[in-house]
Design a protein around this nucleic acid. Structure first.
Lengths: 162, 162
DNA sequence: ACGCTATAGTTGACGTATCAATTCCCGGAG
DNA sequence: CTCCGGGAATTGATACGTCAACTATAGCGT
């Protein structure tokens, strides 16, 4: 599947588009995490972890499954859980039913903080991102994201909207 | 300038689009910086700094101007320059013509590394981003970035393509 | 039983980002 | 002159991400 015609460089216009794209995404990320931080003293990592736990049975997930769910490397998760545990947002206990396994459990304060942060956070997503775009643009964003992910080789073999 | 109708939450579809958008941009960033790292042992921060310096008169820029150019906070730049100086990519000298000022100068090895990294990096941008998108999609990306930036309140007062 | 490998998880080192506090020196008010 | 305010730059603390190295144990083949 190739004409080897990848060997060219981007034009200045293409390069500008690339920079606009990536810098805008970066700015959005920064803005959102800032608001989340102010409104609930949660980082975006905390949020992802607590979101997964809050939806889980018993608010508990095996560490390795949690890593897979949110797409993190094990070591990253381990470090982050260490920090969250220090702040009493989660607990870790070696779990009985599997030989090698750590159960990650959201604490009550952790869940509460998550719920408190959730509404303002979602509202911020709407204000900062959704409200800026027309419905057609939203669809374009989605299509573009899908195409880029597939091109990157993520998304393995998912059904293609059809 | 407002109907206060921002007080709603994003729908599940909107939320999925947001997550796809932000995660895809994140994945692209990670991929690109990984390639840059392998091909030239430069981080994306190093690249931005050296890009600015390589285009400057004498390959020299006053520290505070450099910060403004690449949109970094002063402290971030200071830390980063410290690390780059340790690796001999740049030098810092207190500059004569302004009372308080540090000139940042790219060293020859720094410039060489930048030039060596530049071509593969640009090629990577093309392969990973540009080549994934149709010409129409590229235009859409640009428009969307512009709209988002304006909505964020960046870009102050730039002329709007017309 | 012995050793091998694979898996789950942790740890340490290092680079990076942000914030608050600090240093240095200027230049103006008294 | 001395004190004070303010801009330029640095520093230290803390959080975050990644990589490579490490621990511990279960399961397998011989």
């Amino acid at each position: 599947m190739v004409y080897a015609k990848h060997r060219t460089m981007p034009t200045p216009v293409q390069l500008r588009i690339w920079r606009d794209y990536i810098e805008t995404a970066e700015a959005l990320r920064t803005r959102l995490t800032g608001r989340l931080q102010n409104e609930s003293s949660l980082s975006s990592g905390d949020y992802q972890v607590l979101l997964a736990l809050s939806e889980a049975e018993q608010h508990t997930i095996r560490s390795s499954e949690l890593a897979a769910m949110i797409g993190w490397e094990r070591s990253r998760l381990s470090h982050h859980l260490g920090r969250m545990e220090k702040r009493q947002l989660i607990r870790r206990i070696p779990c009985a039913d599997a030989v090698h396994g750590i159960d990650v459990i959201a604490t009550d304060p952790g869940l509460e903080l998550f719920r408190a942060g959730s509404v303002p956070h979602l509202r911020a997503v709407k204000e900062i991102f959704i409200d800026a775009l027309s419905p057609e643009q939203l669809i374009q964003v989605e299509d573009i994201a899908i195409v880029l992910r597939r091109h990157l080789g993520l998304d393995s073999e998912v059904g293609t909207r059809e």
